[in-house]
């Protein structure tokens, strides 16, 4: 194999991993909520979408600077999530998980209709001022938005991990995640920690909306990145922050390999001979395929919490 192919492989992998970290950032919002409140939030992708749409629309239509727009989105998302927790989800405590899942699916559909109604459905660019010229390291060309996205994601993971492992509030939040009733009996105001978890998910959604919006443009389809959250969290384990990162990187890399190697290969004559169909698009389903395979061997995901039972 010539050197060019090797460099190209490394480049594909690194870019994939960086995109994966951006997936992981969105997954983090999902994990935070699941960990502490046991709710599976199918609207996380829509949260990302509405924050992106909001910032882009404010910038494009009203000339609001991105920074100000981001702050507005941040405040809005936190308030929105707090209200959501209070109005929709708190009355559902103690109900079957399916009820909560259905509520969040409904919410997702609602948001997907509401926001284009307010801000219009046109695709807008979200310019964070990140240059488009690739960053060149040796033979490797990296996309700047991916590098920034990956770095932001890693910074946040670090901050969240320290918060969870070291601070008193983090300990309390983990206690709440472990057992609601016992936490209450220990003097922890469980509902306040639910609000905290939802607010953090809101912050993460805004970050995701900015980064992904700047990477692929902002319109309704931005919510689709939310779907990638599922292979990410299921690979990594629903409750694990580390799992979200590793799952994100795996999904990103697999996608990159699929798009760069498998899809073009499928159009080659030798492949067509035994697979006489259109081909391509493996990038989109390979993560899900991998998810299924992993579930066979590690039903809790790679880093999910194994339910300890001692009698």
């Amino acid at each position: 194999m010539d050197m060019f192919a090797v460099w190209y492989f490394v480049e594909t992998t690194i870019n994939g991993a960086l995109i994966g970290l951006m997936y992981a950032l969105i997954a983090l919002g999902f994990v935070l909520i699941y960990k502490s409140t046991d709710a599976i939030n199918f609207a996380q992708g829509q949260f990302v979408m509405i924050s992106g749409v909001m910032v882009a629309a404010l910038a494009a239509d009203y000339g609001v600077p991105i920074v100000v727009g981001a702050i507005v989105a941040l405040v809005f998302m936190i308030l929105f999530n707090v209200m959501l927790e209070r109005i929709v989800l708190r009355p559902m405590i103690g109900r079957p998980v399916v009820a909560i899942i259905m509520a969040t699916i409904g919410l997702a559909a609602f948001l997907e209709g509401l926001f284009p109604m307010i801000f219009g459905a046109t695709t807008r660019a979200l310019d964070l001022g990140i240059p488009n010229d690739p960053i060149i390291i040796g033979q490797i060309y990296l996309t700047p938005i991916n590098v920034v996205g990956g770095a932001v994601a890693l910074t946040f993971f670090g901050a969240f991990s320290i918060f969870f492992m070291k601070s008193r509030k983090g300990v309390a939040l983990r206690a709440v995640a472990d057992n609601h009733q016992v936490s209450m009996a220990m003097g922890i105001n469980v509902e306040r920690y639910f609000v905290l978890a939802w607010s953090m998910a809101g912050v993460v959604a805004v970050l995701g909306g900015l980064l992904w919006g700047s990477a692929i443009g902002v319109d309704n389809t931005l919510a689709v990145v939310g779907l990638k959250v599922f292979p990410v969290v299921i690979l990594g384990g629903l409750e694990s922050i580390i799992g979200a990162i590793v799952g994100g990187i795996i999904v990103g890399v697999i996608e990159a390999w699929g798009g760069t190697y498998i899809d073009p290969a499928m159009t080659q004559p030798w492949f067509r001979e035994f697979f006489p169909f259109e081909g391509g698009g493996t990038k989109d389903f390979l993560p899900y395929l991998l998810m299924i395979v992993v579930l066979f061997f590690k039903p809790y995901g790679l880093f999910g919490k194994v339910h300890i039972e001692r009698v």
Partner: peptide
């Protein structure tokens, strides 16, 4: 009903929440 996934010290810390 201990917090099974927390360390012993973190269990105690959680108990001292107030």
């Amino acid at each position: 009903r201990v917090f099974t996934h927390l360390s012993i010290e973190d269990n105690l810390l959680a108990g001292a929440h107030i």
